[in-house]
Write a protein that binds this DNA or RNA. Structure first.
Lengths: 258, 258
DNA sequence: GCAAATTTGTTCGTATGTATT
DNA sequence: CAATACATACGAACAAATTTG
């Protein structure tokens, strides 16, 4: 009878109500019991329809409360090729704040957590060290306008610390000037190039909780390997961005401003 | 009783069987009826578990046949900053073939479909023309080793054709030399820079069918706006890549080869 | 080529648990 | 504590797609 399954028809109908502005952001949808009557369908069917909408990020269900139209988050755009000339990259700790404030939005970053451990395989390969070699790990969560925006973890060779040249890497405090500048001043290691490797995948449980995204949502994961003036990897930074609120720009040549 | 819901436990158990190699790619999972007995759960609960695995891209269900472990697709990596010096970009028609063949894989591209129509708002803005202005649209589907890999649509101002300078844009045939070179030869318009705008979103129905990805999968959508030597937009190219088989690299400075 | 068997897809009804108000 | 709303789980029936005999 139905060309399309009923749950899909219900989902489409609810979606058109959202798109048309009939249902506005933050507004509560009818409860499952009410929708059951409206569409003359079972509760399970209604729930299947709502599941479709949640995986599209259009609605959000809260146990004990109801289902609500999500307010569209104004996406933040990170320029990955920022300041190519100076060697400082887009989305870094040092440039993150200014990129956000340029947009008249309010950045906030969590306390930095520092850890020392054996290099995970993916990191060891990129840093050109062995898997048994130790690395310093600096982790930080970032917010924009109080909304969780990204999780970043940087890995440095432990040798930077054991050589006593860059001891501050192990201190769990924001290095005001940025680690890139700090390493240049302390060790004479200058970041002259980097390579970003961009993937998208489903979020793990931790990321689902922190960002508040559904299990079938999607995150960007960007591995940045930075090299010094000798072409030696000096740092690997892994940043996870929920796809519903992050976009990226890559400039090649000198395109005119937007 | 259950810290974790039962469908999640079942999903986790099946996942560990896949990760451990107990279930190998292309192998059929036990049928829903068999799993129902194995885990002493109802068929619906088993189905919920399988749904989790499909949205992770670990398994694929085929009506009338069964559920199968997906063979992991070897991802293709597109360098977005290819040949920055010459102004030719990564992932373009002209460079797509060579990038793929460098990888010892076999590229294939569908016939090009050409259309003329009013500029969609997103395109008109980027091309710096009005929404009522006409554009030429060149669409192509791309495969690697016979697997659908990307869908690309390029938009050019209709003026390029009406001025009689670049009539071949309207011909539904591959422009061997690449449109970038063609426009340079025919019109003296040289592509000197471009800007890529990278997003990720859920696939539409057409994309689900073409790429064979689930409704809650994820695709990259990259808008490339290319500019000529005067800083005027000459082209907008929109490419859609399924996230399960595509990754991207951005080079800033001159990082050493991989 | 067709009918039967198998397997997943959709839909219903019902019951109970958990979170919030 | 009670009422409300979503989450999980069971069982059942029929439909649709595919394979098998």
């Amino acid at each position: 009878m139905a060309q399309q399954p009923m749950y899909q028809q219900i989902a489409d109908d609810l979606r058109s109500q959202i798109d048309s502005g009939d249902l506005v952001p933050d507004q509560q949808l009818p409860t499952e019991l009410e929708l059951r009557k409206t569409y003359d369908a079972s509760r399970n069917t209604v729930r299947d329809a709502i599941k479709r909408l949640t995986s599209l990020g259009l609605v959000e269900t809260r146990p004990g409360q109801g289902t609500f139209v999500t307010r569209k988050i104004d996406p933040f755009v990170t320029v990955l090729t920022q300041d190519a000339a100076t060697g400082y990259g887009g989305g870094e700790g040092a440039t993150y704040r200014s990129q956000v404030e340029e947009d008249r939005r309010t950045p906030f970053a969590s306390q930095i957590k520092v850890e020392a451990k054996s290099a995970p395989p993916e990191i060891a390969t990129r840093l050109g060290i062995g898997e048994d070699d130790q690395v310093v790990l600096r982790h930080q969560e970032r917010y924009i306008d109080k909304v969780p925006w990204s999780m970043q973890t940087s890995f440095f060779p432990m040798e930077f610390v054991t050589s006593r040249q860059a001891p501050d890497l192990l201190i769990a405090k924001d290095i005001e000037e940025g680690t890139v500048r700090y390493l240049e001043k302390a060790m004479g290691i200058k970041q002259t190039s980097y390579r970003d490797w961009i993937t998208a995948r489903a979020p793990d449980e931790n990321e689902q909780n922190f960002f508040g995204i559904p299990h079938d949502g999607s995150v960007f994961e960007i591995f940045r390997t930075a090299y010094d003036q000798t072409g030696t990897p000096m740092r690997v930074t892994v940043t996870v961005f929920p796809a519903d609120r992050n976009q990226f720009i890559v400039n090649v040549g000198q395109p005119p401003d937007l």
